[in-house]
Nucleic acid binder design. Structure first.
Lengths: 201, 201, 201, 201
DNA sequence: CATGAATGAGCGTTCATTCAT
DNA sequence: GATGAATGAACGCTCATTCAT
């Protein structure tokens, strides 16, 4: 057999693309390496050249998306403060999940309930953003923008609220994104007694 | 002289107990039927006499807990109406998850990300309670107790909020249950503009 | 498929028989589990039910033969002493190798040059018998039957001499066993200055 | 300005050196081409430029050492005859094995038990020297230096004796070389009734 | 000549499921 | 009803070999 090499430098990307597709559709355990192989027009050997094993290939996808999420949020809140920053963080998380359906499904669904090496992954990402939000919330409380609340509980509740609505949207496509944006964000902010002024943003 | 005759229901229960224990600790895929066999002091054959296969054994546990949840909530809201009923429903869901740590873990974690035959299960349970809550919320809105909101978004956001806080508690034991109860419920109610009166249960 | 079970208790033996046959013909690495499966009229699962892995299956054969060798020699020398005992030990080793061609090939050829878990096996067996012989030789020296020699060197040289002649016989069938018996034993005994009396034994 | 042009023989040697090292340490099957690559600071392609495949690379080492052995023995016995020639041949074989520990291990251990293409190799080398010795022995018998013996059995027994003592020394370093030299050679010669005169080299 | 990414046939091992006892 | 030895399809992973650069 001749080695068809249409774009030598991109083998790794082609693998990641195919893996993202198959993993997000079938989940970790129902994904066969052979499916990724054929979908990526590479070979088993290539996968194992670029990734140590199936698990690490999966985790590479999760990490890749977690990093993207982090970057987006960090950029978004760069010049904001107080509740505006909280709002931007939440908004960016929702928007990013919405924009990247398949990575979102991998992080929020397929990475759940796996064994020890994975389990912490989703929780780690969640905790990271929850802590970030808790921190900003506390600042808003200290600044007197909102009344005191249990920021730890609030931040994790918010992450869960976002996750669940997004997961449902990932699966069913409902409710439509505008409705989510319009309904979810005010709901979260209202839960800490922060009413957005009409016409803002 | 009477022979020792094993109580059939007893065997089935021993299997379910062992399955609950192992599944909740290791998850669906990392659980070997052999582990359930040894933990239940039964046999492979017994498991396959009482359950058609591994999948159905797992689902039996999920169903069992979903039914319990349903019963508890139904009882709790029997004589209430309006936002009081909403409050009771949420409260009961949280309380029941808290009381049954391992079944909660199975429903909220281990049943996630499995193949088609499973994932409908978790989503079905979630949807069921979300719809129930959406329905009661709508009544409260119609009754003028709270301002109009997107009940579909709200109910799924609430379920997610509860799930995530509970999942974290299942894993880490934090925050302590009283704090969850004190922090989460008011948060959810406040998110639809419903302030509990001081002193109210 | 129905489970054909002609002799339920003998599955393990059938596996060992087939393994002995295939391993002795092809060597450890060139033996495929599938070949043992078909030759044993069992299944892959059965092999892994009775043995933890390929390596241990192979070692079971080696150990089995090493034990047999030990037993034979021990019985043979039970009531002898001095050089007569030495002679009997050597004779029994040669005779047993000759009688069990395939196990001999496994121990003397196929178990050589494998990785760490095996390597010591052949050496261990060799050392064991060499030490035994060295011990008896020393007694014969102390008793004045033969002149002093380096018993450590002698015993290992003897084992090697026997091994090599047997290995050649295993491969080529030459020289014929009587010639080996007639030529090898006197050679070894003469090497320590012990001449057998004509007509003895 | 002259370009740096790698000496082709140098590359080939580096590969052989690395191969000798790794093969002698890990054996044929446990050696990965990648290990030889890194140890030789060359590349996969280089190995396949200089050798047709792994097997031939291994055999090149065996042949190289067999040739050396042959040369040494031939030189040593050039001007001798009768039992003196036999003694010199044996002595040179032992001395050469002792001097080249790693090649000896490859020939005597790692080349054993491999598939058809190899095992003829080790056996061929053994047979070659055995026949050479058998031939010289026969001459000594014909010349009346020693009593008649089965030269075929004797020569293979001798090779085995030497091999086994050397193999043990290769693994354990025991017994020390002088003891081997002092003990093994007289033992072999005595086995055919040839007593060295005191004071003789 | 040298390089190393790419290939893919091949194999050991797992484990849910079956069924004779 | 209970038991556990037996089954075999299925899969992750290895590694010698190739060849475009």
């Amino acid at each position: 057999m001749t080695h068809f090499r249409p774009d030598p430098e991109n083998t790794r990307s082609r693998i990641l693309d195919a893996a993202l597709d198959v993993f997000s559709r079938k989940g970790y355990h129902d994904t066969r390496l052979d499916e990724i192989v054929s979908e990526s027009t590479t070979s088993k050997g290539s996968i194992y050249f670029h990734f140590p094993n199936k698990e690490q290939l999966f985790l590479a996808l999760v990490d890749q998306f977690a990093d993207l999420l982090e970057r987006r949020v960090t950029e978004a809140i760069a010049r904001a403060s107080g509740m505006a920053r909280v709002r931007l963080a939440l908004e960016t998380v929702i928007a990013t999940f919405s924009k990247y359906r398949r990575p979102a499904k991998i992080l929020l669904v397929q990475a759940v309930g796996l064994g020890a090496p994975f389990e912490n992954k989703r929780n780690a990402v969640t905790d990271h953003f929850a802590q970030m939000i808790a921190c900003y919330l506390q600042e808003a409380i200290d600044a007197g923008e909102i009344a005191p609340v249990d920021v730890e509980v609030v931040s994790h509740a918010w992450m869960g609220a976002i996750y669940n609505v997004i997961v449902r949207w990932v699966y069913t496509g409902e409710p439509e994104l505008p409705r989510i944006m319009a309904g979810l964000l005010p709901l979260l902010l209202r839960s800490v007694g922060y009413e957005e002024k009409i016409g803002e943003q």
